[in-house]
C-alpha cells in the first residue's frame, strides 16, 4: 500500500505533464471542431441542396466510423499515401477535430433552427446581406444557446483523447500505462489517470458554465 503511494507520488509530476499534452490535444480538436462545425452548420441550414447533401455525408461518415479506425487510417494510411509527414500528436488533433466538427455542427444546427424566423427577416429588412445577418445576428444567439451542448461535447472529446495513446501520443493515459508496466502498480496509476480525467472534465464544464452565465442575455430564455 505505502509502496503504491510512493510510486504514485513519484509518477504524479510525469502524469501532470501528460495532462498538458491531453489539454493541448483537446483544445486543438475542440477549436478545429468549432471552426469547421460552425461552417458545416451554416451550410446545412442555409446552403443549397447539393451543399446540404455533401455536408450530410460528411457528418454521417465522421459520426459512423470509430475514432480508432480513423486514427489508423489517417496516421498509417493517408499520411504516407499523400507523402505528408505529420506527428502522431497532429494527426490526433486533426482526427478528433474532424469527428468533433461533425457532432458540433449538429449542436449548432439545432440552435440555429431553434431561433425564430423573424430574426433573419428583420436583419434582411435592414439591408443586411445573408452573410452579415448570419455573422451578426444568427450566430451570436445560436452560439450562446450551444454552450451546454458544447460542454457535453468537450467532456466526450476529452475522454476520447485517451485513444490517441494508440498512436503513441504521450498523453495522460499513455504515461499512466508506461509507468504501470515498469512499476507493476497498474491499479493505482490507472485510477490516478481516471481521476485526472474527471478533474479536467469538471474544470472544463465549470469554466463553460461560467462563460454561459457571463454571456447570458438578461431576461432571455429560449
Amino acid at each position: 500500500m505505502t509502496e503504491s503511494l510512493i510510486v504514485l507520488y513519484g509518477a504524479l509530476p510525469y502524469l501532470l505533464r501528460g495532462s498538458l499534452v491531453t489539454i493541448a490535444v483537446v483544445a486543438g480538436a475542440m477549436m478545429l471542431g468549432l471552426v469547421f462545425g460552425i461552417h458545416l452548420a451554416v451550410g446545412q441550414v442555409y446552403g443549397g441542396r447539393w451543399l446540404r447533401r455533401v455536408i450530410g455525408l460528411y457528418v454521417w461518415f465522421f459520426r459512423g466510423v470509430p475514432l480508432l479506425v480513423l486514427l489508423f487510417l489517417f496516421y498509417f494510411g493517408l499520411c504516407s499515401l499523400l507523402q505528408i509527414n505529420l506527428s502522431a500528436f497532429t494527426v490526433s488533433v486533426i482526427v478528433l477535430g474532424l469527428i468533433s466538427s461533425a457532432y458540433q455542427s449538429q449542436i449548432f444546427r439545432g440552435a440555429i433552427m431553434s431561433l425564430p424566423q423573424g430574426q433573419l427577416k428583420a436583419a434582411r429588412a435592414l439591408g443586411m446581406s445573408d452573410r452579415k445577418a448570419i455573422a451578426l445576428i444568427i450566430l451570436p444567439q445560436a452560439l450562446r444557446l450551444s454552450i451546454p451542448g458544447w460542454s457535453n461535447e468537450y467532456s466526450i472529446v476529452l475522454k476520447d483523447s485517451a485513444v490517441a495513446y494508440a498512436l503513441g501520443v504521450m498523453e495522460m493515459m499513455a504515461r499512466a500505462h508506461f509507468v504501470a508496466s515498469r512499476t507493476y502498480e497498474h491499479l493505482p496509476l490507472y485510477f490516478a489517470a481516471g481521476f485526472l480525467f474527471m478533474i479536467l472534465t469538471y474544470l472544463g464544464t465549470k469554466g463553460l458554465r461560467i462563460l454561459e452565465e457571463k454571456v447570458r442575455i438578461p431576461g432571455y430564455s429560449a
Binding site: K159, S161, A162, V163, Y165, Y190, F191, G194
Partner: peptide, 17 residues
C-alpha cells in the same frame, strides 16, 4: 467520468493484481 480506455485497462491489466 473515466475514459473507456482507462476502464478497459483497469479490467485487463489492473485486475490481475
Amino acid at each position: 467520468g473515466f475514459p473507456l480506455v482507462v476502464q478497459l485497462f483497469i479490467w485487463y491489466f489492473g485486475l490481475p493484481h
